[in-house]
Design a protein around this nucleic acid. Structure first.
Lengths: 393, 393
DNA sequence: CTGTTAGCGCTTTCAG
DNA sequence: CTGAAAGCGCTAACAG
């Protein structure tokens, strides 16, 4: 059932054909390898028109294509760069990739894309593998690298530029969102819209600098507006039980904030949903409003600020399950990252200049590969607030 | 503004350090290169324990890592395979990629991922580039390849396996969704739910076999149920004007199908939305119900069947814009592909076994690389219907 | 302008 | 068991 393999008509077997080599071409053109090499490398001015023509013909006749590996071996550079991705599942990553590809294309580089799938161990292995292929540099959307194989600016190892996140103790070029400004932008927007009870929801900080920066900036921005209350909720999306617990906490806050009187119905829904999952359900049950001194005025307006798209999606799914299709009437949601479904769901977002981030990263790396010796650079690009229904009425 | 580049403290310049070579290791271990090579290749039984120990030590001391390029050059195989992707923006692609990566990992292959971004020209270039790097095989999620560089089973060129779509006149292994079964599954579901006016919406067929297969299967399935009417709408997502036109057509059908009496309001909304765009607006204006003989009974129940996720998203966005948040009360929507937002939007889907598709593709390719000579295989995996609110009530 | 000669880092006969 | 030598396909001096 997992392998409905069918057969279709056969063709005659045939050994893998040997590709023509530079020697073949030389023979075919009645000349030496050197001339071929020169032709290949565009030292065109140094070749008689006649010879050039013969070479051209020979190449065409043999359908010759120079072997990059061999060239790389000799030259010491193979035009390969590594692109280490933490999570391809995050639309952010794919978008950055587009920029990376465009830049590589423009600079004659070939990106070797590696997907660590959020596993530090994979990341380590891939980094290892990349050096084994002698990539000339790496762009790292790091998970938890503390690698010696990477080259701090001016140090040994292989040139690296960081994307989105910096790595503790690794002095390297880095390009990403201006997290502080972005978080401020979002917070201010929420405040301006009159929300006075804001929850910043973020994945475990771990080594991920951007998460930390966003959270700190959020807290700072909240402090400015003393009338409003700010909270931080850490949600480990990889841990169902933890998510459960966190969402329950959120539910309590939302219920406490009050709103239209159908709290009873909502609570009922939550119970059905939760019982199916973990033992933590107990926590969730007492979702009655105002039971907690932390959430005083039943009239406060509550908003959720997701640190990135994966978090936002998780939140939206939960809210919809708990409060129904009309959940946005109950809670506001704003997210950093602007996934394609944000428009459909009508969620306010802060869009990152993803393409530019990727493009810039490659440019930096290219410079380093070419030997640029400047001090480490940080390129912080601004995010753009896209207001949608979820935070405005 | 596009380059807020900042500087940070400097470290002492330093030339890119030479990596240790096999010769270095040999010297360090006081032996010949041959033994090192043997050690590297696990011909462990042929080495005295003593020598092996010395080699181990030397390798560790020098932090030696064999150069894959050089090995590849000598051996004639570099463990690289190409992965040619039509559109990374499509979640389907990313999911397939996960399977590919897992399989590569398991088989000791390294995937070179290339993104053609829906441009046939890019595809051609990348294919060229891949052969230049002497990849041992390619997995192709084709756009419009008619390449001679690819090896038809039993022919010359480089071994290839197709994913999702077959290529005209290229006899090769292929793995993908069982499109016929999937389209039938969807159509039958819609029919069972009582929809009797079904629109299959698909991107231009071009070379993409899966689109064709799905559409044909849809028509066949509709024919079985003579009471219902089936239509096919081709929507070129890359062409705004074409999309406009297609959606207008859809709007007319939907309005004709009738439903709750707020057609006036809906039409108004459509006009506002459209005028901003193209000259084609004229078509859209006369959205009055029953103006068209094709859509007779105002009481018919209409459903949209999207051929894939990108189409579904486009449709959903439009419907929401035109009929408001409650659009699902007006039209049913079902889609092949199960993107993450489907759950949030409550859209019924047919989920493809993407991971398995990717995994299987690599397995096929690996077999070909290892010289398997069987006739071309088709591996058609079944889709799974996931019923959500959009088609049930 | 053009060809000869060494290797790049590694594997692989083929003799010790 | 171990090592010397000959290349893999290509580039880069270094002569002609």
């Amino acid at each position: 059932m997992n392998d409905p393999t069918r057969e279709s008509p056969l063709t005659t077997p045939q050994p893998p054909p040997r590709r023509a080599t530079i020697t073949d071409v030389a023979r075919e053109a009645g000349t030496g390898k050197t001339s071929i090499s020169r032709y290949l490398n565009g030292e065109t001015s140094v070749l008689s028109a006649e010879l050039r023509a013969r070479i051209e013909a020979a190449i065409a006749r043999l359908d010759y294509q120079p072997n990059q590996m061999a060239r790389g071996l000799k030259r010491g550079r193979n035009r390969l760069i590594g692109m280490l991705l933490a999570d391809l599942t995050n639309p952010y990553t794919v978008e950055v990739l587009q920029g990376v590809e465009a830049a590589c294309h423009a600079l004659g580089l070939m990106p070797l894309i590696c997907h660590a799938a959020n596993e530090v161990e994979m990341e380590r292995r891939y980094l290892q593998l990349l050096t084994t292929y002698r990539v000339e540099g790496v762009i790292v959307n790091a998970l938890g690298v503390r690698e010696e194989t990477l080259r701090p600016v001016g140090g040994g190892g292989i040139p690296a530029v960081l994307v989105d996140r910096s790595v503790d103790g690794l002095v390297a070029d880095m390009v990403g969102l201006d997290n502080r400004a972005a978080a401020e932008l979002g917070t201010r927007h929420l405040l301006e819209q009159g929300f006075d009870d804001i929850w910043f929801v973020v994945q475990p900080f771990e080594q991920v600098s951007s998460r930390q920066l966003r959270e700190v900036a959020f807290r700072d921005a909240m402090r400015a507006q003393s009338a409003a209350r700010g909270h931080t909720l850490v949600l480990d999306l990889a841990d169902a039980a933890d998510v459960e617990r966190g969402l329950a906490k959120l539910d309590r806050a939302i219920d406490a904030a009050g709103g239209d009187g159908d709290a009873a119905k909502a609570t009922g829904a939550a119970n059905t949903a939760n019982t199916a999952n973990t033992a933590n359900t107990a926590n969730t049950t007492n979702a009655a409003p105002a039971a907690n001194p932390c959430h005083p005025t039943p009239s406060s307006r509550i908003a959720l600020f997701a640190a990135n798209a994966p978090v936002a999606l998780r939140l939206a799914l939960h809210l919809k399950a708990r409060y129904g299709a009309d959940w946005q009437a109950r809670v506001a949601l704003l997210s950093i990252d602007d996934p394609d479904w944000a428009e459909l769901a009508g969620i306010t977002t802060i869009r990152q200049p993803t393409y530019d981030i990727g493009y810039r990263a490659v440019e930096f790396l290219h410079e380093r590969i070419e030997g640029v010796q400047t001090t480490a650079r940080d390129c912080l690009l601004p995010g753009e607030l896209i207001v949608r229904a979820s935070t405005s009425r």
